[in-house]
Design a protein around this nucleic acid. Sequence first.
DNA 1: CTGCGTGCAAATGCTTTGCAAAGAC
DNA 2: GTCTTTGCAAAGCATTTGCACGCAG
Lengths: 133, 133
Amino acid sequence: MKLKSTVATRNTRQKDAIRAAFVETGRPLSPEEVLSYAHRTAADVSIATVYRNLKMLVEEGWLIAVQLPGEPPRYELSGKEHHHHFLCDDCRKVYELEGCVPAIELKLPRGFRAFSHDLLLHGICPACIPKHA
Amino acid sequence: MKLKSTVATRNTRQKDAIRAAFVETGRPLSPEEVLSYAHRTAADVSIATVYRNLKMLVEEGWLIAVQLPGEPPRYELSGKEHHHHFLCDDCRKVYELEGCVPAIELKLPRGFRAFSHDLLLHGICPACIPKHA
DNA sequence: CTGCGTGCAAATGCTTTGCAAAGAC
DNA sequence: GTCTTTGCAAAGCATTTGCACGCAG
């Protein structure tokens, strides 16, 4: 019955750098974005390690995967309440938005039963608006 | 200046089978779904041909790509007005929904500018509800 | 020390592409 | 007959995994 009693997971320079990326940026990140941020503090992190750690952090409940239409997956800190996202069509950065539209139960044909929904807003983020002046 | 004056595209058994899949099912289809339907009338269609034709049909404006979070792309007949989709969490089929939620402009932080949105409802479709009784 | 975590490279799985042969017109 | 389209197999990409070594505890 091998209980993973104590440690089981070790702290490594790479793992710390990966966690720090989320804490410091405060927004959903793609694997490639995580790699870029992690490189700042741990120059030798490999993309394989990023993928492995993202998966582990999701399994242990520290992160959740954020799927967006036509985009590579992003990951964000878990534990937040229901919210949606904003994708900048220029720089491709994703931001979290508070709240949700009210009557989301739009005309559902008879016989269908909806349990949840995903909403994504597209546009330009503050950092990119100058480029489109 | 090679004008593609006349023909340029030829009608083939495979292409007809692919177009028929959309006309007959009336819902967004993934490449694999298209392949399955096409096999009914053209037993030897290859997946490469499906991908090539989907791309061509999008380029000539007959189809549009429908991207959904965490899902392979679907394709649907173009020319419809603004609408959203429903994904059955059981059979993975996608359906088109009419209309849109009204005040979609939820709390957007200052400095952001939104131009469009994507909405997907998740649930169970009529065909799958019996399985969940 | 022990063995988990890492980098590298090979292996996937989905989609695209090169090429010779089949087929549309 | 000419030139597009197809099927097959190889090539691409993003992501996952096997393996031997390095490092945390």
